[in-house]
Structure formats: structure tokens, C-alpha cells
């Protein structure tokens, strides 16, 4: 760092943001891993359908595939926005 370096704008510490984003995406990808390839597509189409009626966020649709002995459970949850009546 030289004499004039304090004039330069320092980059914002961004490692925290990276870690948080990775934590979320890695968890999401692990939950659908090993499941059928259509899951992400299904998620997107569901999102489109829901958005015809309610303005929900991209992250509002959560798909989870759980395996028990002998059967699989496709769990689907949709977080609706606060306080707004559903049309």
C-alpha cells in the first residue's frame, strides 16, 4: 500500500456475501440431487402458474424429494407474500 493508496476506494468485503449465497444454493441443489431431472423444470413451471395469480418471489417455491424405504415423497411448499389476499 503506498502513500496515495488511501485515495483509492477499497473494495467492500464480499466474502460474507459469497458464503451466504453458496450456503443457500448448495443446500438447494443437494435437496434435489439424485432426483429426477425434471425437478428444476417442474419448479419453474409451477412458479409461472402461481405467478398468474399471486406475485411470489423466485425463492417462494420449494421442492423437496425425500426417500423412505420403498417410496418417495415429493414435498412442495409455496410461501405466499404477507398480508395480501390471494386472488
Amino acid at each position: 500500500m503506498g502513500i496515495l493508496d488511501f485515495l483509492k476506494r477499497k473494495p467492500e468485503p464480499s466474502a460474507g456475501v459469497a458464503k451466504e449465497r453458496l450456503r443457500i444454493i448448495v443446500a438447494q441443489e443437494r435437496s434435489t440431487r439424485g432426483g429426477p431431472d425434471y425437478l428444476p423444470l417442474l419448479r419453474n413451471e409451477l412458479l409461472e402458474v402461481i405467478r398468474k395469480y399471486v406475485n411470489v418471489d423466485v425463492e417462494a417455491v420449494n421442492i423437496n424429494l425425500e426417500r423412505d424405504s420403498g417410496h418417495e415423497i415429493l414435498e412442495l411448499s409455496v410461501a405466499l407474500p404477507d398480508g395480501k389476499p390471494v386472488l
Partner: peptide, 14 residues
């Protein structure tokens, strides 16, 4: 400087 993920961060995520 907080600009790069640390060893611990990467170990935690993975």
C-alpha cells in the same frame, strides 16, 4: 481483508 472465502468457510459450505 474479507475479500475471499476462508478455509473454514469452504469447509463449512462443503
Amino acid at each position: 481483508a474479507g475479500e475471499m472465502l476462508s478455509v473454514k468457510d469452504v469447509e463449512e459450505i462443503l
